[in-house]
Amino acid sequence: MNQKTFFAFIGPSVLMMVLFIALPLATVLKQSFYQTQSVYETLEVETCSPTFTGQVCVKEIKTIPIIGDNGKVITQTNYVGLSNYQNVLELPRVIAAFANNSWHEFMLIDFWKALRFTLSFTLITLPLVLFFGLLIALCINNVAKSIRGPVIFVSLLPMIITPVIGALAIRWLFIGDGVLTSFLEWWLAKDIAMFAQAWTIEFMMTFYRVWHVAPFAAIVFYAGLQTVNQDTIESAIIDGASRWQKLRFVILPHLMPLIVFVTLIHLMDAYRVFEEVVGFSSQAHVISLQWLTYDFLTADLMGNRSIGRASASSMLTMIGITLLLIPVLRGVWNDYKGKRL
C-alpha cells in the first residue's frame, strides 16, 4: 500500500482524533494557566425599607458583577501562571499537615484525598481482578462443555451493565435495611450502617469494580487457555509435574501476554474511577480524581464553573496515569523491539 492510499484510508480518523482529542488537550493545557473571572465593580448602594415611622435608609458599599449589554455578566480572562495548580494542590496546607505529622489533616485536602483513593483503588482492584479472572477461567475450562455457554452468559451480565446502574444495584443491596445489610446484622448480631464511614464504602466500591471487571479478565484468560499447547502439558505430566507446577510453569507463562493486556486495560479503566462515586453518592466520604475535575466543572449556585482549576486538576490527573502506565508500556515496547531484532 503506497503512502497516498494509506493516508486516504487513515485520514478521516486521524483528522478526527487531532480535532477532537489532541486539540482539546492543548486547550486544557492553555486553560490551566488562565483564569476567567467576572468583572466586579464597587458601588455605593442605598437600600431603604419602610417602617412605621417612615423610611429607614442604609448606605453600604457592595461589590457586584458588571452586567453587559446582552444581559450576561462580563468576564475577563487573565494569565495567572501556576496559581490554578497551587489552588488545586494547596501546598501550604500540605506542609502544615506534615509539620503537624497529621495524616488526617492531609486527607482533608480534596486533591490528595482523591489521589489517595484513586491510587489505592487501582492498585487493590488489579490483583483481585487478575486472581478472580484466572480462577473463573480455570473453573470454566474444567467443567463440561454444555454448561460453559450459560456460565459465560451469566458472567457477561455484570460486565456490560451500565456502570452507574451496576454501582446502584450494589448500593440498593446494602442501603438502609437492604437485604445484605439485614443479613449481616443478623449474622454479626449488631447494628450496621454501610454508608456511614469511608472504609465500608470503599469496600463496596472495590467489590463492585471486581464484580464488574473480573468477567472481562475471565473471558480473555479462558480464550487463552484454549490455545495452551497440549504437547507441552503432556510432557510436563510425563516428567511428573504436579498440578500446581503445571499451572505455574506451563499455563501462566503461556497466559503472560494476556495478563499484561488485562493489566494495561485495567490500569487505564480503574484510574478513571468515577461512576462508583456517583452511584454510591459517596462524595462526602470518598472522592476520586475524575470526580474532582467533574466537581470543579459543575456549575455552582451562581452558575460559575471553575474551568481553570478543572484544567489544572485534569493535567495532574493525566500526569498520574502516564506515570502509572510507563512500566507496563516499557514492557510492551521492549517486547516489540525484541520481536523486530
Binding site: 474551568i307 484544567s311 485534569s314 493525566m318
Partner: peptide, 8 residues
C-alpha cells in the same frame, strides 16, 4: 480520563 476531554 474522559473528564480531561470534557474540560477541554
Amino acid at each position: 480520563p474522559h473528564s480531561v476531554l470534557v474540560t477541554g
